[in-house]
């Protein structure tokens, strides 16, 4: 018990130190590194949003970039000359649109078993990307520009605030509340969760909408930050792929795993870019990361630091079991 308390205080102290360093980062590094840190915070937040459904509820979403893209396009379109909505006002509008999409897509697809949900979400993102390519109001394949606001510190602190809020929300809802117990229960055994009175359809949908809305917020900030988006840059399947690998590497279903995996892989991406001027090699790194996790790190990097009483099973086992239809995760 004393050791547990000691570990908790040490963890809290580490968290405070990290937050202080992150808050002071703009005065510690130049704009180049600040831009990289902004990207790292975005990926840490996006990975966390994917982990809400994939890690805590056990439903693999291969179309999560759709919600990132909806947020990005909502901000880009609303900030255009036609509407001229202030940036901060575009975020809640983007989240409402995203939530509506998530409800419409999630209500039927979350009833699907095994790999069918993953396939349906992948198809949803592909449809949205094609849609954004052919309609005029998105700028089609040519993309859409936003009013430039060249203030790296603003975007750094925007991503920082969004990431801190995302992790606080995740801790509160998934680690410290009844809601989190319900979500994890349905991940581990859906029929048993129903037998405990849990309306699993509703809880899954709530989790899906929450994860979508968080991705949408990061999409909004991203669009304003980069000042130009096109369908591939915000709906592309590679965006979801990166989130998945970041979570797997960091630790599926853990609070800090997505942050560890997100920051680590994004820095690897930038280092490869700096030294080779190309990120093609990065794809190979992602593949290697998946192999590493499946073979040696089922609980991810975060699992190396977690106190485990035994060696049986992992969240990855459970989630893969659901994906392959060999577990009681799905509705029977």
């Amino acid at each position: 018990m004393a050791q547990t308390m000691k570990n908790r205080w040490a963890g809290l102290l580490l968290l405070v130190v990290i937050l202080v360093v992150l808050a002071l980062l703009p005065v510690l590094v130049n704009n180049y590194w600040l831009r990289i840190a902004t990207g790292a915070l975005m990926w840490a937040g996006l990975a966390c949003s994917w982990n809400m459904l994939g890690g805590y509820a056990g439903y693999i979403n291969f179309g999560h970039s759709a919600f990132f893209g909806i947020g990005a396009y909502a901000t880009a379109i609303l900030m255009g000359a036609e509407f001229a909505v202030p940036f901060l006002a575009t975020i809640p509008i983007g989240t409402i649109v995203t939530a509506l999409f998530a409800v419409v897509i999630g209500a039927p697809t979350l009833r699907l078993r095994g790999a069918y949900f993953a396939i349906a979400t992948w198809a949803f993102a592909e449809v949205l990307m094609q849609f954004a390519t052919v309609v005029d109001f998105t700028g089609g394949t040519g993309g859409i520009g936003l009013p430039p606001f060249l203030n790296e510190r603003f975007f750094y602190f925007a991503m920082f605030a969004a990431a801190v809020l995302t992790y606080f929300l995740t801790w509160l809802l998934f680690e410290r509340s009844r809601f989190g117990l319900k979500v994890k229960a349905l991940r581990d055994h859906e029929p048993a969760a129903e037998a405990m009175g849990i309306n699993t359809s509703l809880v899954k949908l709530q989790t899906f909408v929450l994860s979508a809305v968080v991705a949408s917020v990061f999409g909004s900030i991203f669009a304003y930050w980069v000042t130009f988006i096109n369908p591939k840059s915000v709906f592309g399947g590679d965006i979801t792929d990166q989130m998945v690998v970041m979570v797997l590497l960091g630790g599926l279903g853990s609070l800090w795993g997505p942050a560890i995996g997100g920051v680590a892989l994004f820095f690897v991406n930038r280092l490869i870019w700096m030294y080779y001027g190309d990120t093609a090699f990065y794809i190979a790194i992602l593949g290697a990361a998946i192999i590493l996790v499946v073979l040696f790190l089922p609980n991810g990097i975060a699992g190396l630091f977690a106190r485990r009483s035994g060696k049986s099973g992992s969240v990855l086992d459970t989630v893969l079991g659901r994906l392959l239809g060999s577990r009681q995760g799905g509705r029977s």
């Binding site: 117990l181 319900k182 229960a185 991940r187 581990d188 055994h189 849990i198 279903g253 459970t318």
Partner: peptide
Amino acid sequence: LARTFQIPALFENMTVSGNLLAAAAEGHW
């Protein structure tokens, strides 16, 4: 109405305490 399953249907990635609390998460908190 509550039930057990022929093959124990536990929330395997949760702790023993977590399993008990999850059972009370809906309605008897």
